[in-house]
Amino acid sequence: DLSALRVEEVQNVINAMQKILECPICLELIKEPVSTKCDHIFCKFCMLKLLNQKKGPSQCPLCKNDITKRSLQESTRFSQLVEELLKIICAFQLDTGLEYANSYNFAKKENNSPEHLKDEVSIIQSMGYRNRAKRLLQSEPENPSLQETSLSVQLSNLGTVRTLRTKQRIQPQRTSVYIELGSDSSEDTVNKATYCSVGDQELLQITPQGTRDEISLDSAKKAACEFSETDVTNTEHHQPSNNDLNTTEKRAAERHPEKYQGSSVSNLHVEPCGTNTHASSLQHENSSLLLTKDRMNVEKAEF
């Protein structure tokens, strides 16, 4: 173990290094160091905050020279020094078990990766560091076993998940096959086929009936047209017969005018059967003409 005197000496050296690497504005270890034209180094955030307070150039807090945003430059070497100082402080805390008085939040800088452990060898070769390295080497064999167990647990979990997924996939297939086998029997399929065939026959029977009705309507229309044509021909046949009657009536009127007047009046009210309204109107006109002729003949006879 380190003596108290040596611990104090190391602590004083760390404090001196820390004062050199402090920012003059925030009085902390410089984060993202930036250098000016006057070779003074500050935190990048502190300098941008200072420049944004005034429009135009501002003055350096140490030498009062003008500073602009374009004049600022990043210093990589200074950032490396800060990183190495942080590593020294971490090693000091691990070796002594004491917390550094002016320690900052170094938890963000710590890294437990194997590459980081290899890099620590180049920091300080001390008894405390050696003991700590031995402890780490002793704890390393235990870690692979834990990793193997965790991997086995994960693989077993994956296997159970896969088996569950396969079961879920197989179950719908089985149910679907069961439904297909038990849903419709052979008799049901035959009945469905016969039902479809009967429906098709009914459709075939319905369509000819409609065509037959249309044919019957067409035949009825044709018969009505033929009947009207026969009526017209009958009226045409009746007209010459009426003319013959008129000639006979004229002759009778010349011989017996008194008797014919009474008979002509009675004939006005008689309509021949089986004739249309057109034929009756023609008869009325003929009878009126005959009456006028008879009157003329009677007057001539009187004179």
Rank of each mutant, 00 (worst) to 15 (best):
L2P: 13
S3L: 09
S3W: 13
A4M: 04
A4F: 04
A4C: 11
R6Y: 04
R6D: 05
R6S: 07
R6K: 09
V7G: 10
E8H: 10
E8I: 03
E9G: 11
Q11S: 11
Q11L: 08
Q11Y: 09
Q11N: 02
N12E: 05
N15H: 11
A16F: 14
M17S: 14
M17A: 07
Q18F: 13
Q18T: 13
K19S: 05
I20Q: 09
L21Q: 14
C23D: 14
C23M: 15
C23L: 15
P24S: 12
P24C: 01
P24T: 07
I25Y: 11
C26P: 15
L27M: 11
L27F: 06
L27R: 07
L27G: 09
L27Q: 06
E28G: 10
E28F: 10
L29M: 11
L29Y: 02
K31R: 08
K31I: 12
E32S: 09
E32D: 05
E32F: 10
P33W: 13
P33Y: 12
V34N: 12
S35L: 10
T36H: 04
T36Q: 04
K37C: 03
K37A: 01
K37V: 02
D39L: 02
D39M: 10
D39Q: 08
H40D: 07
I41P: 03
I41G: 08
C43Y: 15
C43S: 15
K44R: 06
F45T: 08
F45P: 12
F45K: 06
C46G: 15
M47A: 00
M47F: 05
L48P: 10
L48Q: 06
L48M: 03
K49Y: 11
K49T: 04
K49E: 06
L50R: 04
N52W: 04
N52L: 11
N52D: 09
Q53S: 06
Q53K: 04
K55G: 03
K55V: 04
P57S: 05
S58C: 14
S58V: 08
Q59P: 14
C60S: 15
P61F: 14
P61G: 08
L62E: 12
C63D: 04
N65T: 12
N65A: 12
D66H: 04
D66P: 00
T68C: 04
K69M: 00
R70I: 09
R70Y: 03
Q73N: 07
Q73L: 14
Q73D: 12
F78C: 05
Q80L: 07
V82Y: 01
E84R: 08
E84N: 08
E84V: 08
L85V: 13
L86I: 06
L86Y: 05
K87C: 06
K87E: 08
I88S: 13
I89R: 10
I89G: 08
I89N: 10
C90H: 03
C90I: 11
A91C: 10
F92H: 09
F92L: 12
Q93S: 06
Q93D: 09
Q93V: 09
Q93A: 13
D95E: 12
T96M: 15
T96S: 06
L98M: 08
E99D: 10
Y100C: 01
S103H: 02
Y104P: 15
N105L: 12
N105R: 13
F106G: 07
F106D: 09
F106T: 14
A107T: 06
A107E: 05
A107I: 02
K108Q: 06
K109V: 06
K109F: 15
N112S: 13
N112H: 14
H116N: 01
K118S: 06
K118N: 14
V121W: 01
V121G: 08
I123A: 14
I124D: 08
I124F: 07
I124L: 03
Q125I: 07
Q125L: 09
S126Q: 08
Y129A: 09
Y129I: 13
N131A: 08
N131M: 15
R132S: 03
K134C: 01
R135T: 10
L136T: 04
L136C: 03
L136S: 11
L137G: 10
Q138R: 05
Q138T: 10
S139T: 08
E140G: 09
E140Y: 03
P141F: 04
E142W: 05
N143E: 05
N143H: 02
P144L: 05
P144C: 05
S145G: 05
S145R: 02
L146W: 09
Q147W: 02
E148D: 11
T149V: 00
L151E: 14
V153F: 09
V153H: 12
Q154G: 13
Q154N: 12
Q154T: 00
L155H: 13
L155T: 14
N157L: 01
N157I: 01
N157H: 12
N157F: 02
L158V: 10
G159W: 14
G159T: 11
T160F: 02
V161R: 11
V161W: 00
R162G: 13
T163A: 09
T163D: 05
L164W: 04
L164S: 10
L164E: 12
L164F: 10
L164I: 02
R165G: 09
P172T: 14
S176F: 00
Y178H: 13
G182R: 11
D184T: 01
S185F: 04
S185L: 02
D188V: 15
T189V: 07
T189N: 11
N191D: 01
T194P: 03
Y195L: 08
C196F: 00
C196Y: 00
S197L: 10
S197K: 01
V198C: 00
V198A: 03
G199C: 01
E202F: 03
E202S: 10
L203W: 00
L203M: 04
L204T: 08
Q205G: 05
Q205L: 00
I206R: 15
T207Q: 10
T207E: 15
P208L: 00
G210I: 01
R212K: 08
D213Y: 00
D213C: 08
E214C: 02
E214W: 00
I215D: 11
S216M: 02
S216G: 10
L217N: 06
L217Y: 01
L217P: 12
D218G: 14
K221I: 00
K221T: 01
A223V: 04
A224L: 02
C225W: 15
C225Y: 01
E226G: 00
E226L: 00
F227K: 13
F227E: 15
S228G: 03
E229K: 11
E229Q: 01
T230N: 05
T230M: 08
T230D: 13
T230E: 03
D231S: 12
V232M: 03
T233V: 02
N234S: 05
E236V: 03
S241N: 02
D244E: 11
D244S: 01
D244C: 04
L245S: 15
L245W: 00
T247C: 08
T248E: 09
E249C: 09
E249S: 08
K250Y: 05
K250E: 11
K250F: 06
K250A: 09
R251Y: 07
R251F: 14
A253P: 07
A253S: 13
E254Q: 13
R255C: 12
R255D: 04
R255P: 02
H256S: 09
H256N: 05
P257K: 02
P257A: 12
P257N: 07
E258A: 11
E258N: 10
E258D: 11
K259Y: 00
Y260S: 13
Y260I: 07
Q261L: 01
Q261R: 05
Q261Y: 01
G262D: 12
G262V: 10
S263W: 00
S264W: 03
V265I: 11
S266R: 05
S266T: 04
N267Q: 01
N267Y: 00
L268W: 00
H269N: 13
E271M: 08
E271Y: 03
P272N: 14
P272R: 03
C273Y: 03
C273G: 01
C273D: 08
G274Y: 14
N276H: 00
N276I: 02
N276Y: 01
T277R: 15
T277Y: 14
T277H: 08
T277N: 08
H278I: 02
S280G: 14
S280T: 09
S281R: 14
S281V: 07
S281I: 01
Q283T: 15
H284M: 03
E285I: 01
N286I: 12
S288L: 12
S288G: 13
L289F: 03
L289V: 04
L289T: 13
L290G: 09
L291P: 13
K293W: 10
D294C: 14
R295G: 15
R295Y: 06
R295I: 04
M296V: 12
M296H: 06
V298T: 15
K300E: 01
A301F: 10
F303M: 07
